[in-house]
C-alpha cells in the first residue's frame, strides 16, 4: 500500500512525500499508458508488437516481436489475442501510445509500452534480431495455479472417479444445458450447500466464463474442499454445451 510506504519515507526524514492515491486504475482511465519493464519484455508470456515500417523491422527488432506497421494496425484487430498482455514499441513514445490506445479500444486486457523502442533496448545491452516477421501471432495462456486445463476438465466429464465438476451458474442458465458428471449449485447458494459436495473428490468449478467459478473457489477453500477453476467460455443451447478456451 502506497500510504504505508509514504508514512515510512516520512519517518525516515524525507520532507516532500506525496501519494498518487488514485493509482494505476485512474491513470489508465485518464487515457494514459503504462510501460513494461525490461524483464517483462525479455521473459514475460507476452505478444510484442513492433509498430515501425517493414524495412526498419527487418533491419533490427527486439527478439520475439511481430511487425505490424502503424498504418496497417487498424486492420489487424482480429489477429491480436486480446487476452494476451500486449507490449508495443515504436520510434517515438507518441506513436507507441497511438498503437496502445487503439488496442485498448479493442479490449486488450493488459497492454503496455516498451519505451524508447530498439534504442533503449540495445542501450541496456540487449541484442536485436533481424529478418522477416513470423507468419502469424500465436500465444498460449499459461495456466494459473488454481486453474484446470480444458483438456483435463474434459477428461473429468467422462471419468468422475476422483473429480467432480461443479457448475455454479444460475438455475436459469442451467435450463439450457448442463455438462456431464457435474453438480449444480448456483454461486449464491454455495456457502450454504458446501456440505452436499462429496468428500475426497476434487471439484472442478465452472460457470460461463470463469469469474463466478473463482468466487466459488474462495467459498470451497474456506470449507476446506480441494478445487480448481476452469477459465473458459461455457455456452449451452437446447441441451448442448460448448466449451471454448
Amino acid at each position: 500500500m502506497s500510504p504505508k510506504s509514504a508514512g515510512l519515507a516520512k519517518k525516515m526524514g524525507h520532507t516532500d512525500v506525496r501519494v498518487f492515491l488514485a493509482g494505476i486504475p485512474a491513470w489508465k482511465k485518464a487515457g494514459k499508458s503504462v510501460t513494461a519493464s525490461e524483464k517483462f519484455v525479455q521473459t514475460g508470456n507476452i505478444v510484442l508488437v513492433d509498430l515501425r515500417s517493414k524495412e526498419e523491422y527487418e533491419a533490427g527488432h527486439i527478439p520475439k516481436a511481430h511487425n505490424i506497421p502503424m498504418a496497417s494496425l487498424a486492420a489487424k484487430e482480429d489477429s491480436l489475442p486480446i487476452k494476451a498482455p500486449v507490449v508495443v514499441y515504436a520510434n517515438t513514445f507518441l506513436e507507441a501510445q497511438q498503437g496502445y490506445n487503439l488496442m485498448k479500444k479493442w479490449g486488450v486486457k493488459t497492454g503496455s509500452i516498451w519505451p524508447g523502442g530498439v534504442k533503449s533496448w540495445t542501450d541496456k545491452g540487449n541484442k536485436l534480431a533481424t529478418g522477416p516477421t513470423p507468419a502469424s501471432i500465436s500465444w498460449t495462456r499459461k495456466l494459473g495455479k488454481n486453474e484446470v486445463s480444458l483438456a483435463e476438465f474434459k477428461k473429468a466429464m467422462d471419468d468422475g472417479a476422483n473429480q467432480l465438476i461443479l457448475d455454479v451458474r444460475t438455475s436459469d442458465e442451467v435450463k439450457d444445458g448442463i455438462l456431464k458428471n457435474s453438480k449444480h449449485i448456483p454461486l449464491d447458494e454455495i456457502e450454504k450447500r458446501v456440505g452436499e459436495l462429496p468428500k475426497g473428490k476434487e471439484m472442478l468449478i465452472h460457470c460461463s466464463t470463469g469469474a463466478r467459478a473463482e468466487m466459488a473457489k474462495a467459498a470451497l477453500d474456506k470449507a476446506g474442499i480441494k478445487s480448481r477453476v476452469l477459465i473458459a467460455d461455457v455456452e449451452c443451447e437446447q441441451g448442448k454445451c460448448e466449451i471454448t478456451d
Binding site: R18, V19, F20, G23
Partner: peptide, 10 residues
C-alpha cells in the same frame, strides 16, 4: 519529491 502509488485507493 517522493511520489508513491499502488493499484488504487487501498
Amino acid at each position: 519529491t517522493l511520489i508513491f502509488y499502488c493499484g488504487g485507493f487501498t
